[in-house]
Design a binder for these strands. Structure first.
Length: 323
DNA sequence: AATCAAGCCAACCGCTCCGTT
DNA sequence: CAACGGAGCGGTTGGCTTGAT
């Protein structure tokens, strides 16, 4: 349509973010809140596209983000939500508030897809939707959601969803009842926080953690000296824990944002007002080392066997909205 | 020790959706 | 009601890291 790009191509910086840029962005958002992204580059002086700013914030700087080391529960949840929702990562991410859609997407493409393929090859085929959707290899991702949308007329769609829900429900029950001593995310995260792989600032959770610690500290210098990946005791896990109190601000933002586009995510929106309670529960559970994703709604869905189904949670009035 | 290949992840791009005028 | 603009989403890519030879 010849619409102008969201930002001038010339003079816009690309590539990995520097600590200084992160700091500028964080302090701006601290002051003005997230939103009005178009104004961010001009107001902060960042030579970045507004999209880039938003992405950086939502995927890395936003408080309360857990990185790496997906627990088995999370894995299963993702697999089954993917089977249900297709490649609607934002909607899936709304069920895992500590994970970003990008993170989930990456994890799916790099790990889960392969895993499922392997399982299927081994004759398992535990999962029709998700497994059959996969294409393998890099960049061959055939959007599951889209293919569903394209393939299934509305009538079939609902029937298929019912079947999927039944399957997913069963599997979720298994997943949630997994009494997982788990590879303790805290320790696992510490172990896997790759001292080596974080040569680039962008991938250094340590840096980001320090940055945000500075932010959290009233007048704490904003982590200005938090450059260089020197080893202090702080791991990504501790950072996450400390970031949690920020939940009221942006944790909800992404959920409600995705909710605006999807019925499934709208369900998650129902959670967001309870951020201070629900999410803080997670903060203590998940952040402190225990794998406690935001299962509250799913749990109630599962526990309430006959009554409240997912259908009640997810407005299915118009399936076309859903897919 | 050097080279190559594969894996992984952060970031970009283009499209779509939604709210506003 | 239509057009426009901003924001969000999903797919894809580029570059760094790690492991194998």
């Amino acid at each position: 349509m010849g619409r102008p790009p969201c930002c001038d191509k010339v003079g816009v910086k690309k590539g990995p973010w520097t600590p200084e840029e992160d700091l500028m962005l964080v302090s701006y958002i601290q002051e003005h809140g997230a939103g009005n992204w178009r104004a961010v580059p001009t107001n902060t002086g960042l030579m970045r596209c507004s999209k880039s700013c938003r992405l950086r914030w939502t995927n890395y700087l936003r408080p309360g983000i857990k990185r790496g080391n997906f627990t088995e529960q999370e894995e299963k949840l993702i697999v089954h939500l993917q089977a249900l929702l297709g490649n609607r990562w934002a909607a899936i991410a709304s069920y895992l508030p500590e994970r970003t859609d990008n993170d989930i997407k990456n994890y799916w493409n790099t790990h889960l897809k392969k895993k499922l393929k392997k399982m299927q090859a081994a004759g398992g085929g535990e999962d029709d939707g998700a497994a059959s959707e996969g294409g393998g290899g890099r960049g061959d991702g055939d959007g599951g959601g889209k293919s569903v949308k394209a393939a299934a007329p509305k009538g079939q769609w609902e029937r298929r969803l019912q079947t999927d829900i039944h399957t997913a429900r069963q599997a979720l029950r298994d997943a949630l009842s997994l009494d997982h001593p788990d590879p303790s995310p805290a320790t696992a995260a510490a172990a896997a926080t790759p001292a080596g792989s974080s040569a680039a600032y962008a991938s250094s959770a340590d840096n980001i953690a320090r940055l945000l610690q500075g932010w959290m500290r009233p007048g704490g210098g904003g982590g200005g000296n938090g450059k260089g990946p020197e080893a202090s005791g702080s791991t990504s896990t501790t950072a996450t824990t400390q970031q949690q109190p920020q939940c009221s601000g942006e944790g909800a933002a992404s959920a409600s944002a995705s909710a605006s586009q999807s019925g499934a995510a709208a369900a998650a929106t129902a959670q967001t007002p309870e951020c201070s309670t629900e999410t803080s529960k997670m903060a203590t559970g998940g952040g402190a080392g225990g794998p406690a994703p935001a299962f509250s709604m799913l749990e109630s869905w599962l526990l309430d066997d006959g009554g409240m189904g997912l259908m009640d949670v997810v407005p299915l009035g118009d399936p076309s909205e859903f897919f």
